[in-house]
Simulated scan of single mutants.
Amino acid sequence: MKKTVLTFGTFDVFHVGHLRILQRASELGERLIVGISTDHLNIQKKGRPPVYHQDERMEIVAALKCVDGVFFEESLELKPQYIREHQADVLVMGDDWQGKFDEFGDLCKVVYLPRTPAISTTEVIEKIRD
């Protein structure tokens, strides 16, 4: 059976940091499934809507060679359900979340990957505003 890797993110204003973490996540298994945060969830998490609509963000991520499937993440509390539904063997998150998902270690392996230095969506948006 193929090893399934699961990760989550907003993937707004897509940049090379997004691409690199998805590529590295895909190397940990044979199948990469990505949960795209809905617009509503993003507003709850960050207090603002994403620049790009959830359908556009999903289309961008789904088009990547390293991604095998996408779905909408509607709630942070549903992560255990998503892990089970997608039969994830590995949960990958950026290291800015270090330790925050260790509780799911009984469902799958949890891996935190280093973020690409000196780039974030927030920084890109601020640069554009300036």
Rank of each mutant, 00 (worst) to 15 (best):
R20Y: 15
R20I: 14
L22Q: 07
Q23G: 11
A25M: 10
G29T: 04
G29D: 02
E30H: 02
L32M: 04
G35T: 01
T38P: 13
T38N: 10
T38F: 09
L41F: 07
N42W: 02
K46F: 12
G47N: 12
G47K: 13
P50K: 06
V51Q: 09
H53T: 14
E56L: 10
E56I: 10
E59L: 11
E59P: 05
I60A: 10
V61N: 01
V61D: 01
A63L: 04
A63P: 06
K65D: 06
V67M: 01
D68P: 13
G69V: 00
G69R: 00
F72Q: 01
F72D: 02
E73A: 10
E73H: 03
E74N: 12
S75T: 08
S75D: 14
S75W: 05
E77Q: 08
L78D: 08
K79A: 07
K79R: 08
P80T: 09
P80K: 02
Q81T: 13
E85W: 01
H86Y: 04
Q87R: 15
A88K: 03
V92D: 07
V92N: 03
M93D: 14
D96G: 01
W97Q: 07
K100L: 15
K100G: 10
D102F: 15
D102V: 14
E103Y: 11
E103G: 12
E103D: 09
F104A: 02
G105D: 08
D106S: 09
D106V: 08
D106H: 03
L107N: 03
V110C: 06
V110Q: 06
V111N: 06
V111E: 07
V111P: 05
